[in-house]
Design a protein around this nucleic acid. Sequence first.
DNA 1: CCTTTGTTGAAGTTTTCACTTCAGTATTTG
DNA 2: CAAATACTGAAGTGAAAACTTCAACAAAGG
Lengths: 112, 112
Amino acid sequence: MNAEAHDARVDAVFHALGDVTRRAILERLSRQPAAVSELAAPFAMSLAAVGQHVQILERSGLVRTEKSGRVRTCQIDPEGLSLARQWIDERKRLWEQRFDRLANFLDEDEPE
Amino acid sequence: MNAEAHDARVDAVFHALGDVTRRAILERLSRQPAAVSELAAPFAMSLAAVGQHVQILERSGLVRTEKSGRVRTCQIDPEGLSLARQWIDERKRLWEQRFDRLANFLDEDEPE
DNA sequence: CCTTTGTTGAAGTTTTCACTTCAGTATTTG
DNA sequence: CAAATACTGAAGTGAAAACTTCAACAAAGG
């Protein structure tokens, strides 16, 4: 995968995670798969709105869906979560690496 | 910390991460601390805009800043990243736990 | 078959958000 | 001290995003 495509995926994932409703949907789906109407039940918003959120989650790769009959069943796609996690871990890694370098520098410079 | 406050922090962090520019700022800061004007340099947008992004990052807990003289120096606050990571890991954990339960169920039901 | 259920597309509305400009403040530098 | 630098607050603009309603449609159930 080239860099732009990767960035576009990261962008889609973090954009999707940026919304409270979509995160609530993911929390629900992390327990077990559910139909769109089941996902919509706890919310004070229209079914159509929840359906749109599901589409965004699916396009981002955080959720996979399958339609059987008239019911669309949704489940977590762990790949999407992994992508977000990787990005975060990489930032943390670089940041901590910097501390290590700093410590080494101080050790060399002032060995008592 | 109560649940609402935790949710509010999670919300602020993921909202902050939802923007490409802010993620780029974090990428820059993961290498080393920088002043607001340094952060702004690579972008085709006003200094004020970048300053606003920094404020959002700071309120979310992803970045810590300190003003000395007229320069505000920014650095990563790893706590914010940890919070995001914890949320993601918890979803992954629950999701995988579900697979384990399913496997156990199948083992019991059809022990060959 | 008729009705209900579950979803989807399209179009319109409202809210949120990123960004701009500009004025104002504090700090440094020549 | 004057000029340049580094922000910062406020107010406004435009676009994106969330949400609504309504119409259409296919699949199930009675």
